[in-house]
Design a binder for these strands. Sequence first.
DNA 1: GTCTATATCACGATAGAC
DNA 2: GTCTATCGTGATATAGAC
Lengths: 186, 186
Amino acid sequence: METVERLIRSTQELLWERGYVGTSPKAIQIAADAGQGSMYHHFSGKAELAKAAIERSGAELRAAAEEQFADGTSTERITGYLRREREVLKGCRMGRLTSDPDVMADPVLRAPVDETFQWIRSRLATIIAEGKENGEYPAGLDATRTAATIAAVLQGGYVLARAANSQEPFDLAIEGLVDLLTGVTS
Amino acid sequence: METVERLIRSTQELLWERGYVGTSPKAIQIAADAGQGSMYHHFSGKAELAKAAIERSGAELRAAAEEQFADGTSTERITGYLRREREVLKGCRMGRLTSDPDVMADPVLRAPVDETFQWIRSRLATIIAEGKENGEYPAGLDATRTAATIAAVLQGGYVLARAANSQEPFDLAIEGLVDLLTGVTS
DNA sequence: GTCTATATCACGATAGAC
DNA sequence: GTCTATCGTGATATAGAC
């Protein structure tokens, strides 16, 4: 693999594990097996490398979601997305960046994070709207609100799981949401 | 205010804003208006200070929640808790620590985070169970799952809001959940 | 209890040789 | 493109005076 590619992937991994503040250029170089000079030749510094890594992660997350959204009823697509296998205890690569002060303070770094969540909420809202049209969901269901709730349960599920050092709270939160969405209670 | 108290409160604030990795002893000393020697006289170092600060924050969060849980129907108590005023764009003081690698790696620092979320989920489950007993909620509603979902929506709402740099997604997620819980859709 | 001085190391980058 | 050397700064303490 080429140096630039190794640098980007190593940065993605380190941002996931340790965040932006907790990731040093030195650590990236070691993980990518690249020298100091090499890294600074290809990227102006830590920030530019992080930008490339975050954008890459955003594209990968969207692609993974689209796979789940490909076909099925609205409920099947949403529950498929919610229940797909995830590295729950590692947390969300994108969501964890929202607690990184230097990422949030830099519009260039925050933009791909923002866009990723806007996209997923909008995509979920569309699927819910389709479910309303074909009678799968009641007409009174607010698609925009519900989409935000679904995205929030996922992100919050990661938080609860990491706090507990166990996947269980994540699964509970997801299944509790599925119960509410599929009217298991009525 | 005494030095120890100022140190703890300043650490709470800095952990909230910048996390454990992003907070230096020096920054704490400046915020607390305490000298280097003073800080190391009262605390063995950054970790012990963080432990005190996280435990304090946990106690405060539980107290704030209990206020909302004091009286009303189950739905009133839950929606009151969900809708109470929050500094949404600052994120959750406790939740943000789950993305801090050094906090998660240290059992002593993770413990108060874990306990806080266990407590809130258990407290919510009790309220839901009470709602089932008095007929406010259907018997088929799983209290443990639903409690996890509610806690997750809050935590995820913070994430979405910070990503968007706007409180809107938080409010959408909360109201979407309230819709589902109160059966507005049926 | 609080102060200043000092120590050691890592961070994030630049410079110039090869 | 990659290497090594170097730089100035900040992190995280320790030591000992007051």
